[in-house]
Design a protein around this nucleic acid. Sequence first.
DNA 1: TCCTAAATGCAAGTCATTCTCATTAAATTA
DNA 2: TAATTTAATGAGAATGACTTGCATTTAGGA
Lengths: 139, 139
Amino acid sequence: MNYEALLINKNLKKTFPRLKVLEILDRADGFLSADDIHSSFKDEAHSLPLSTIYRVLDSFLKEDIVHELNLDHRNIKLYEIAHKHHAHHLICVECDKVIHLKECPVHSFEEDLKETYGFKMNHHSLDFYGVCDQCQKAL
Amino acid sequence: MNYEALLINKNLKKTFPRLKVLEILDRADGFLSADDIHSSFKDEAHSLPLSTIYRVLDSFLKEDIVHELNLDHRNIKLYEIAHKHHAHHLICVECDKVIHLKECPVHSFEEDLKETYGFKMNHHSLDFYGVCDQCQKAL
DNA sequence: TCCTAAATGCAAGTCATTCTCATTAAATTA
DNA sequence: TAATTTAATGAGAATGACTTGCATTTAGGA
């Protein structure tokens, strides 16, 4: 993944914080919170303040570079590079594991809603919360 | 709706705050935030502190007396008496109008997930965000 | 190289929600 | 009915995720 090209392509200035956050998200294998991103700097000399991280994430959200996932059971937002997966999830409320679901079973339902209610659709969230196999055994 | 009977039925002590919150939620015609509930006391002599309201709502959630709705675009939780509607929504990000959807198009999908991943399912959220008819015209 | 708007760093602020702890009250028991 | 136990409440402080104000820096075009 060419970070610089992506930023230029999205008309975002190529700055150190943006490149760094992009790299961290790209190398992560799942969702990260703003705080996760912040923490991943702890051993490096040049860290980033949380305010900058939030601003960078906002600019990425606007350009659809990242997806946002709201965790109902934690009151927290998680972020992931957008192209990685479609945005439906199976979430374990015990260990916070997130399983990505590729299928979107509500696509045609959404089309119907647009028509019925005259909505201009923005996005939809479809997330399943439960206890995973391993945590069931552990409890 | 018999508030006292409901509480007794759920093994919840019949207290003034619980009866009051139940009544407010029952009389509301949509979702309310904890703050909405708090505000609805402003003209009355005996109000309730927010801490109590949150605790009452928690006890109601545990007993499935209320449903909780997380608003992605506002970072806020809304509550409604559970029996009123099934919990899927079409939400306008401009005016915060919430339209209740009766149909659940992911029921069989959820059954498949349980089987495939061995999850014990807790709940799922399915919410559509967009701009409603009226707000589109107003923009 | 200069210029300007945009981005950043830092600190302070916001706001929904939770917690602490002393007090009160509900429901059980004597 | 009174005493007891235990949960619930009230008030306010605390938390924690996120946002904002503002002075400074920097990217990218002139």
